[in-house]
């Protein structure tokens, strides 16, 4: 094994996704192993200006790949566009975006009862179940949340008018996340 061959092997290894490799050529043994420290130097994905060296670049990357459901592929376009819709980075930071209203005595905050993907319509291309300004009755289906390959219908608990839709089609939602604000009538 000459120096050039070794360099080539190292280069190929570095570019691959392999963790370790053992090679024996002409009686010479070469063992390469990726160092755990090298991974620790990957720049965190949320610092502006850094190009993250990881595969995952945000919610959009996951959802945009299209989801295989029991009912066949449901192709979701990049609904969330890479924005964090889930979770806070520190205690005290508001869970939902600043756009979620304060509510008020007469507003019903409709929250996600489980973790899953929010769909505004029964199927892609169809009309959404509800739009802002629309009147709803108790029992009307407001949206569908997909979880564990099952579609769960979320129904209105009250009669009223949909004041605001707080999430976008295809958003991943967590338990307790505000989805709709409904003005009771």
């Amino acid at each position: 094994m000459n120096v050039e061959e070794i360099k080539e092997l190292i280069q190929t290894f570095a570019e691959s996704g392999l963790e370790e490799i053992e090679a024996e050529l002409d009686g010479n043994r070469l063992y390469l192993k990726r160092s755990a420290d090298a991974q620790a130097q990957v720049a965190p994905a949320n610092i502006p200006g850094f190009c993250p060296n990881t595969v995952y670049t945000g919610w959009g990357a996951q959802i945009g790949q299209g989801l295989q459901t029991g009912q066949g592929t449901h192709d979701i376009t990049n609904g969330s566009g890479g924005t964090d819709v889930i979770g806070a980075d520190a205690p005290g930071v508001a869970k939902s975006s600043a756009a979620v209203g304060e509510g008020g005595a007469n507003t019903e905050m409709v929250k996600a009862p489980l973790v899953g993907i929010f769909y505004e319509a029964p199927a892609p291309g169809e009309e959404p179940f509800v739009k802002e300004g629309q009147k709803v009755k108790k029992g009307d289906v407001l949206c569908v949340i997909e979880a564990m390959k099952m579609m769960n219908e979320l129904k209105a608990d009250v009669d009223g008018t949909v004041k605001k839709v707080d999430v976008k089609n295809g958003d991943a939602v967590e338990f307790g996340q505000v989805l709709f604000e409904v003005e009771r009538c």
């Binding site: 994905a45 889930i86 996340q177």
Partner: peptide, 29 residues
């Protein structure tokens, strides 16, 4: 890096809620 709310306080609704935990894992990649 991220945190997902998975349920009401009782363990059976949250930390034992297999559906919500698996879904949380999947939606966050």
């Amino acid at each position: 890096d991220k945190a997902v709310c998975i349920g009401a306080p009782p363990a059976k609704d949250s930390y034992l809620n297999i559906g919500n935990i698996i879904e949380a894992a999947k939606v966050t990649g």
